[in-house]
Amino acid sequence: MSEQLQAPSPLIPVPRAPAPEIPAAAARDELEITIDGKRVKVCEGATILDATKKLGIETPTLCFLETLTPVNVCRVCVVELEGSRTLVPACSRKVEAGMVIRTDSERVRLSRRVVLEFLASSVDVSTAPQLRAYMKRYKARAEKFGPRAATVAQPPKIDNELYVRDYSKCILCYKCVEACGVDAQNTFAIGVAGRGFHAHIATEFEIPLTNSACVYCGNCIGVCPTGALMGKIEYEMRAAGTWDESRQTRTETICPYCGVGCGVTVHAQNGQIVKVSSPIDHSVTQGNLCIKGRFGWQFMQDHE
């Protein structure tokens, strides 16, 4: 399998040439908008979320991820826009010159809080640290809808050796569907099925993953914000009470398989690999891996 393949080599090295030209991105106008009384300039095409980041304002997001097309369904990022009848989603609304935006008005706080209460009253958020932090910030109370409020509770789906789907933890943020679909993997093993409160993530006819189109890239796990999708090793360690992120190291390195050069983060506990992920800002992967990269490291366990 050696594949060192070279054209006949010149005896004399090729001289250094000036750096290659890279087409410049189309010049974009700067627009000025006002957020919470502060003026800020951002490029045309930027979102309100981009602008709030520039001002250091922390906007909660759940369904948003830099590498995915905004679906703006969770609505925790809503802000008040002067002249708009309703609140608008910061993650996807593009800025327009002269916008006046408030990110912390009573109206905004109420909607964000109620949205979080809606989620936490219907979904098990025990492994969703980000969402729990938002709840604390907005003083959201999941129990206010009473003990008989409908939930999405259901047994976890364990149908393969690599990862577990526990949809009682699913907030339907669509990220896994996007990662499995057009935004990354283009395998389309899962989609949103059903409607309304019972809308859910599913394979066709709820068939087990092992019959589905799934290629076990685990890119859905990589984007899941609530732990509804989890590697089986992590799932089992959590069940056994041995999963301890405070004792884990994270090391950036490169996948040992093909020559694409995917950046991986190796999560190790007690000197053993327990999980592999990829940094979302890695230029090659954008956080995505294939089955070998994400799960193929178990040979290290045999290497003793």
Binding site: R75, L119, A150, V192, R195, G196, F197
Partner: peptide, 16 residues
């Protein structure tokens, strides 16, 4: 029964 279920306020709100 008619909410599409896409966004949280409508999906859960109509139920609550």
């Amino acid at each position: 029964s008619e909410t599409c279920g896409q966004c949280v306020p409508c999906r859960v709100g109509t139920m609550r």
